[in-house]
Amino acid sequence: MTPAPPSRPLFSAERSAEVVTEAFRDTPDPRLRTVLTSLVAHLHAFAKEVALTQAELDTAIDFLTRTGHACTDVRQEFQLLSDVLGMSMLVDSLDHTGPGQASATESTVLGPFHMVDSPPRDLGESISLAEGGEPTLVTGQVLGADGTPLAGALVDVWQADEKGYYDVQRPGEVPDRNLRGLFTCDEEGRFRFRTILPAAYPIPDDGPVGQLLKATARHPYRPAHIHFIVGAQGHRPLTTHVFVAGSDYLDSDAVFGVKESLVLDFDEVREPERAAPYDLPVPFRHAHVEISLRVAEAHR
Rank of each mutant, 00 (worst) to 15 (best):
P28D: 10
S261I: 05
L293Q: 11
D251T: 13
G234E: 04
M115R: 13
A41P: 04
Q211C: 03
L10T: 12
P281F: 05
T72A: 00
L90R: 14
L238V: 09
Y249P: 12
V138K: 01
L94R: 11
A145M: 04
A200P: 14
D26E: 14
A104Q: 03
E134T: 11
R190M: 08
A4C: 07
S103Y: 00
R236L: 15
F191S: 03
G231P: 00
P149V: 03
R170L: 15
R192N: 10
R8L: 14
G172C: 01
Y201V: 03
S38P: 02
T27G: 12
E290G: 09
D156N: 14
G246R: 03
V289H: 11
A232V: 06
V209H: 02
G210D: 08
H227F: 01
G68D: 01
S7A: 13
L110D: 12
C71I: 12
D248H: 08
V142A: 06
R75I: 05
L179S: 03
P171R: 02
G246E: 02
T105G: 10
F266C: 09
L280T: 04
G231K: 12
G132W: 01
F256T: 09
A45H: 14
E260Y: 08
G132P: 02
E271T: 13
Q233H: 08
S16P: 03
V209Y: 02
Q141W: 05
G111H: 04
T139I: 12
L80V: 02
L213R: 11
R25H: 10
A104E: 04
G132S: 07
G86Y: 09
R66M: 01
A102R: 09
S93D: 15
K163W: 02
K214D: 12
R192G: 01
E49N: 11
A160R: 08
P223E: 00
V116T: 15
A145V: 13
V138D: 04
T53Y: 00
H235E: 07
L110N: 13
P99C: 05
Q159R: 07
D26R: 09
S38K: 13
H235F: 06
A287F: 09
I203C: 04
V40F: 12
V116S: 09
P3W: 05
F228D: 08
E125N: 01
H286D: 08
A41K: 14
A276T: 15
L39C: 05
Q211D: 15
D253L: 05
A70T: 06
I127Y: 01
F228N: 05
T72Y: 00
L36W: 13
V263F: 07
R75N: 05
L123K: 06
E162H: 15
A296V: 01
A224V: 06
P28G: 03
